[in-house]
Design a protein around this nucleic acid. Structure first.
Lengths: 207, 207
DNA sequence: ATATTATTAGTACATTTGTACTAAATTAAA
DNA sequence: TTTAATTTAGTACAAATGTACTAATAATAT
């Protein structure tokens, strides 16, 4: 059976997730696929090319998820958080070596920087909308929601790593936990109306 | 001049911070110290021993800082945050490879796990005290302050990495920024009394 | 059927790494 | 001063890694 780029990426991703990025060499991947190293380098000349391809898979999945989640209010935030965290879990090896990858791969780093700018704008838009609709209170401190965003982003980028360390090994069940940890950080900024919506949302999720 | 363990650790730390953990080999360190590799391995038989020693330096510094900061209320939290973040910056190479180190070094991992338990108890104590003294509001959600702690911890463990990625390279000036980002996450849980104390604290810092 | 292209296996090379080992040199002890 | 211990330099080794190269095989096109 002929090997495909897709199959290589799929197996590589699984291996990276299981063993950790640095413990998977080109030979490891070739062995798992029962193909020769020569064959592997024919499809991906460099190991970094595999990592890049998987990173952009992640990004594609993310964009799709964000595009789909077009609800309003808190529900949309919840839905996005959930979708994003699931994807981050799927590509958890990237998140577990996030800092290393960003430091060593300029192509990925450059792309990620632009992504951050976009995300910040999107976040600001949502926040402003929530304020207008009386769900979120006004800012009381300088840069208050800007800093909230930084915390959101930081937790988004690193909850997988944190979970891996805190709970021996990260598992699927942790996604829900961190969904809630992230979502709760919004709660104390909500107005009375917002809190009611929050509680309603929580009830609807439990069902 | 005779080489000392202290000198080796100091130079290793600087190199690790500048070049990143994975880009500093035993030979790099020996070269920088203008000693032979043989001499270096005489003082530290394994590269991992150097990393461990530096980790425990960090821990010692941390414990000392926490022991000293015995104020009350929000001021104590601010003081501790500030001290801890400064130390984390000093040993930033550890934070930049935090996940990798925790995954690969069992000794450090085991120690860190115990440290986490202790920190959580300390945090819970402070929170309860702040509630009693009417500075922090009661919990409104299940596990609300537990989750706040997880966010605190996560940001504490990874703000260095995040700053490194977001701002090309982490610098001393970022410490203040993240002090505030962390401290602000407490703000919306404060009572009226607590918020007054918060504003007073902020004014006193600006001076 | 033949020619061309794509795919595969196998191997080889250069580099790097941690660290073990030996012998010399230096320092401390008697 | 002689002996013992400590420290140093230099080297060597084994393992792993990314990836380039060559020749074979298989697939496709003409």
């Amino acid at each position: 059976m002929r090997i495909t780029k897709g199959k290589i990426l799929q197996v590589s991703g699984t291996l990276f997730n299981e063993k950790g990025l640095s413990n998977v060499s080109m030979r490891t991947i070739a062995d798992e696929l029962t193909i020769s190293p020569g064959n592997l380098t024919y499809h991906f000349r460099k190991r970094e090319d595999i990592i890049e391809a998987l990173y952009f898979e992640l990004v594609d999945n993310m964009n799709e998820a964000i595009a789909q989640a077009q609800q309003t209010g808190l529900a949309s935030i919840y839905q996005m958080t959930q979708a994003i965290n699931s994807i981050l879990y799927t590509y958890r090896f990237i998140m577990l070596d996030f800092t290393t990858i960003m430091r060593n791969n300029k192509k990925i780093k450059t792309h990620f920087e632009k992504l951050c700018e976009l995300r910040k704008v999107q976040f600001t838009g949502i926040i402003n909308h929530l304020i207008k609709t009386g769900i979120l209170r006004q800012e009381e401190l300088p840069r208050e929601y800007e800093f909230l965003y930084y915390r959101f982003q930081l937790i988004g980028d690193y909850w997988v790593s944190s979970a891996e360390i805190l709970h021996q090994k990260i598992a699927k069940k942790h996604i829900e936990l961190y969904n809630e940890i992230i979502l709760q950080s919004l709660y104390p900024y909500l107005t009375k109306k917002g809190r009611n919506e929050y509680h309603a949302l929580m009830k609807s999720i439990l069902i």
